[in-house]
Design a protein around this nucleic acid. Structure first.
Length: 586
RNA sequence: GGGCCGGUAGCUCAGUUAGGGAGAGCGUCCGGCUUUUAACCGGACGGUCGGGGGUUCGAAUCCCUCCCGGCCCGCCA
């Protein structure tokens, strides 16, 4: 049955082991798989995962699932779940499979505490003061789907959050199907699973008890929703499988030190008026949705995964999906935390990065703990650019090229979801003519606003050839806005802005005289190179330090003490403007 | 305390499948671009591959052990 390594090894860390323990031990019994065999080496981890999935002969459509709990903010951490599944989905589609990527929203879970921060529909993080916070506080203990949207836009808080996540996925061009847990219960999809669990309470307790100490002979793994107050309750009095009803009392609930008060109501719930606890709900989802593969964070690896596997086999009678644990990444060296303010949302990230760069970040090996550092986002972009060049055979690096050849098409392309996922949306041949301005250079271009000027500077620097197609120039220059935003956000050394108005500054007489001389020189009509040289000349003639003279120039044009290569920069600007500014006239 | 996963240059990372040269980019330093001014070019510096032990002719890679970090082993998800 279990097939593959499943019989003897249920570790979810399939990307750490890769065939390491194959063959060697030769466990008793002929459970030895031959279908999976020793797969060929893969430079892209998603191929390794896809091999595991194919080895189980899944039926199409193959179902890849992710899951998310509605919380205050949908942030890049959630993207892990989206993108990891996406790359595996794409590989399987390329191999001819039909694939569904579904995402369950655990929205029947109760709100346990009021989040400190929320994200609005545009992905902007806001404090509770900006919304109807009372709508949250008054509804502690109720399912997310029963709580009003604090922004007053959607039918519930859960719907608001789900919409955020779906929007983020779309921004990254990943089509996902959102599935509401609440709806699954309401429409009866979980009926069989609940019946299975409640019909075999002893069996469930025996299995679950191996993983959770609190499971005793009284434990009933079902949480009814109180018909009176609407809160998720924990105290089940009796179960009648025949009539499919559960008697309960709405008692107080402990949530990490705090108590959510129950209303004391004694009532009767159906299978659809409540929920399974997470440990059981997860494998129940596998059954209901026919899940073949699920990536999840390291927090699930040692807790709910082993128990989920056991429950799947011995309670629900199904094979668990192929698992994949991914490492968490840090943001600026610190753990992501919306309450601590250390988060970035997808829309925010896309203001400084092209979507393909974000996708690239998640195409890197999932088992490595990585840091996403906005301050040095240029490094990530440089790596992407190199990765892209490697795909086009422009980098002398065998390893990188092998990875790029496999992963790049999925990073920039993918398969058309509209066609059932089998129609390729490949790398357009003309993409080879694309131009990527180095990110920090793009930041330099961001110091000026005029698009024509930006293009001219890039041409002068040799980034565009005579025959560079117009679309390539256009796309390359789009990065300038990203880099500009980055410079402003991080307030870094590229955050200069050509000053429209004359900055307020005083200069020594000799510096002022030198500026006047330079103005005369510029007025005569010289190119940037000549101006650059003249600056040294002028400084020497007036007996002032070159550094001081440049500083004066930076002050006039950028209101800063430093900046880009000034002479060549001025050579590109409108002459009258430069002359007037050097004379401190305008 | 136990288990799992990570630990390669200042930074970001590749290399571990099949043991044999320790690498890339960025940064730094030096030099070039007609005379320091963050864009371009060249070069150099830079690592006990977390430590130690073992197997081997040979170990970043395999084995053992220890250290550090994260996660799990209560609830919840």
């Amino acid at each position: 049955m279990g097939g593959g390594r499943g019989m003897t090894d249920d570790s979810p860390h399939i990307l750490s082991e890769q065939a390491a323990d194959r063959g060697g031990a030769g466990d008793a019994g002929g459970a030895d798989e031959s279908t999976a065999g020793d797969e060929a080496f893969h430079a892209f981890w998603a191929d390794v995962v896809a091999d595991e999935i194919e080895a189980r002969d899944p039926e199409d459509p193959i179902v890849i699932k992710g899951g998310v709990s509605p919380s205050g903010v949908a942030h890049v951490g959630n993207v892990n779940e989206v993108m990891r599944g996406y790359f595996v989905a794409e590989v399987l589609r390329e191999r001819g499979h039909e694939v569904r990527q579904v995402f369950t929203s655990d929205d029947k879970d109760p709100l346990r505490k009021v989040p400190r921060k929320l994200a609005n529909a545009d992905g902007e993080i806001v404090g509770l003061g900006d919304v109807d916070a009372g709508a949250l506080g008054r509804n502690l203990g109720k399912p997310y789907t029963a709580i009003p949207d604090p922004f007053g836009e959607r039918e519930s808080y859960a719907a608001h959050f789900a919409a955020l996540l779906r929007a983020d996925a779309e921004r990254l061009d990943v089509p996902i199907e959102m599935v509401s847990n609440t709806e699954l219960y309401a429409e009866g999809s979980f009926d069989d699973a609940v019946r299975t669990v409640l019909s075999d309470l002893d069996g469930v307790r025996e299995v679950l008890g191996k993983y959770q100490d609190k499971v005793d002979d009284e434990y009933v793994p079902f949480n009814p929703v109180c018909a009176e107050c609407g809160k998720v309750t924990e105290t089940v009095v009796s179960v009648d499988v025949e009539t499919e009803t559960i008697e309960y009392v709405c008692t107080d609930m402990d949530v990490g030190g705090d108590t959510i008060e129950g209303c004391g109501h004694e009532g009767t719930a159906t299978f659809r008026d409540g929920k399974l606890p997470w440990r059981l709900e997860w494998p129940a989802q596998w059954q209901v949705l026919g899940v073949d593969f699920e990536p999840f964070g390291k927090d699930h690896a040692e807790g709910s995964w082993p128990s989920g596997v056991d429950l799947a086999r011995n309670v629900f009678g199904i094979d668990p999906p192929v698992p994949m644990v991914y490492e968490w990444f840090t943001l600026g060296g610190e753990a992501l935390s919306s309450s601590a303010g250390n988060v970035v949302t997808v829309p925010e990230l896309l203001e400084v990065l092209e979507p393909e760069v974000v996708r690239y970040f998640f195409a890197l090996h999932p088992k490595k703990a990585r840091d996403l550092d906005i301050e040095r986002i240029d490094q990530l972009v440089d790596r992407f650019d190199r990765f892209e060049r490697a795909y086009f055979g422009e980098v002398d690096d065998e390893e990188l090229t092998r990875f790029a050849e496999r992963a790049y098409p999925f990073v920039v392309g993918g398969h058309q979801p509209d066609s059932g996922g089998t129609e390729p949306r490949p790398v357009d041949e003309v993409r080879e003519e694309r131009v990527r301005l180095p990110y920090t250079f793009a930041a330099v271009l961001g110091m000026v606003e005029d698009p024509a000027f930006r293009e001219q500077l890039a041409r002068d620097e040799g980034h565009f050839e005579e025959d560079t197609p117009e679309w390539a120039v256009e796309e390359a220059l789009k990065r300038v806005e990203k880099a500009r935003t980055w410079a402003e956000r991080t307030n870094n050394e590229y955050d200069y802005r050509l000053q429209t108005d004359l900055p307020d500054a005083e200069f020594d007489d000799d510096v002022a005289a030198a500026l006047d001389d330079l103005a005369d020189f510029v007025a005569e009509g010289h190119d940037g190179e000549a101006i650059q040289g003249e600056m040294y000349e002028t400084a020497r003639e007036h007996g002032i330090e070159v550094a001081d003279f440049f500083a004066a120039g930076y002050r006039l044009f950028f209101d800063e003490t430093q900046g880009p290569r000034l002479g060549e920069f001025l050579g590109e600007l409108e002459r009258e403007y430069v002359v007037a500014r050097l004379r401190r006239e305008a």
